[in-house]
Computed example of a mutant assay.
Amino acid sequence: MKFKSLLTTATIALGLATGAVAQDKTKVGFVYVGPVGDGGWTYEHNKGRLAVEEHFGDKVETVFVESVPEGPDAERVMTQMALDGADLIFTTSFGYMDPTINVAKKFPDVKFEHATGYKTADNVSVYSARFYEGRAVQGHIAGKMTKSNTIGYIGSYPIPEVIRGINSAYIHAKKVNPDVEFKIVWAYTWFDPAKEADAATVLIEQGADVILQHTDSTAPQAAAQEAGNVITFGQASDMGEYAPMPRVSSIIDNWAPYYIARVQAVADGTWSTANTWDGIGPGMVEIGEISDAVPADVKEEALALKAALADGSYHAFTGPLKKQDGSDWLADGETADDGTLAGMNFYVEGLEGEIPQ
């Protein structure tokens, strides 16, 4: 009986210890707009999640739901994650903004991090990357390499993030090639290979020999490869399987350091609401390898532009610049403020067509 009593005491002690460990484990949820294997936006966010698991080991548990539509279904998924005990939830698409705010109100003890939005709360932070810096580098290469002087751009949705990218790419293509023109097709999707392929085909038929995209699948790369003599750029991830042609470089989103830091803050009890917007310098935006299809002098220029953006000696939106309607925007040497960029709803001078409402 004495042995049994000691064993029972030891079992209870072990149970209490195990419970304490379980209680100390941080549970982190991720809500994705696309599939984790798409090789683009969601793929890179999921790489960040995997980096969290590798960094923290058994101190953290992560869960995710992929291909969640923006809207009511997103709110349902976030609610279930919170009910299942998530301490921190990353919601990784612009259209999740209002659902994130709504669910956060119901779960004040859960921390939320919303990607690319602007609405915050006591338990909601926002974060994004200065993708427009990468677009500047792409625009430079595109302007130098186009032979038709027609560059096609596949837009997802006409939100400030996408409009900034179009403007930045155009400004820097125009700087090195005054004859360049942009043709823009709006796909109204983040991830739909069929729509993206159709958009790329339409642009190629209109004479574009360079395709840029703000959509997430590799379908435009495949369409360009089939057409031949068309160059592309990887979006959000390297898409290096299409290198050295048609994909000649890429923008890569590196979320891992941010995710690790924010999970650590929750674990430490130091998390607070923040608005993070980092670019090439801090490493949140990376430029994928520039392939040998790009002439050596163009590659050197592109890398010099990347370095200037990284160290802050150059800003992608530096005047003189006018708006599409011809009105003055930035004087010579003046740079755009973050407030204007965050809410950008206009094209710069030279771009044709209207921004859809």
Rank of each mutant, 00 (worst) to 15 (best):
N275K: 11
A316H: 03
V263D: 04
F182T: 03
S67T: 07
A308I: 13
Q138A: 03
A74L: 10
P257V: 14
G71D: 06
G57H: 04
D328P: 09
H315C: 12
W41S: 02
N177R: 09
G15R: 14
G333W: 12
E205Y: 00
A223I: 00
G117F: 06
I159G: 05
P158W: 11
E241F: 06
A256E: 03
Q324E: 14
K119T: 04
Y258C: 06
H45Q: 04
M245N: 07
N149Y: 01
P295I: 09
Q213T: 01
G207P: 05
E300L: 11
D109N: 15
S156G: 02
A194S: 12
D98V: 07
A342P: 13
V348Y: 12
T270G: 10
T8L: 15
E286P: 05
D84Y: 10
V126C: 05
P282T: 12
M245E: 08
S5L: 15
I251G: 03
I163H: 01
V266G: 09
E44V: 10
V185N: 01
M97A: 05
F346N: 08
S168Y: 02
D268C: 09
T91S: 06
G29D: 09
Y188D: 03
N102R: 14
G155V: 10
L212T: 02
A307V: 14
P72V: 08
M344W: 02
Y127A: 02
V36H: 06
G155K: 07
A316I: 12
E349V: 06
S156I: 01
F94S: 03
K119H: 07
K105M: 11
L305S: 09
K25D: 05
Q23S: 15
T218H: 04
Q206V: 10
A121M: 12
A194F: 11
G34E: 05
V63I: 14
I355C: 04
W271N: 08
T42D: 02
F90L: 09
D58I: 12
S291W: 01
T340S: 13
D332E: 14
Q357W: 12
Y347M: 13
S168N: 11
R262L: 08
M97F: 02
A199P: 02
D192E: 04
S168L: 04
V103S: 08
D209H: 03
A310K: 11
T215M: 05
K4A: 15
T18W: 15
D198P: 04
M1L: 15
A104N: 07
P193S: 02
R164Y: 02
D58S: 11
A74P: 05
I89M: 06
M97R: 09
K306H: 08
Q324Y: 14
A256N: 02
V31C: 05
S217E: 08
W271V: 13
H45G: 01
Q264E: 11
K195S: 03
W41M: 06
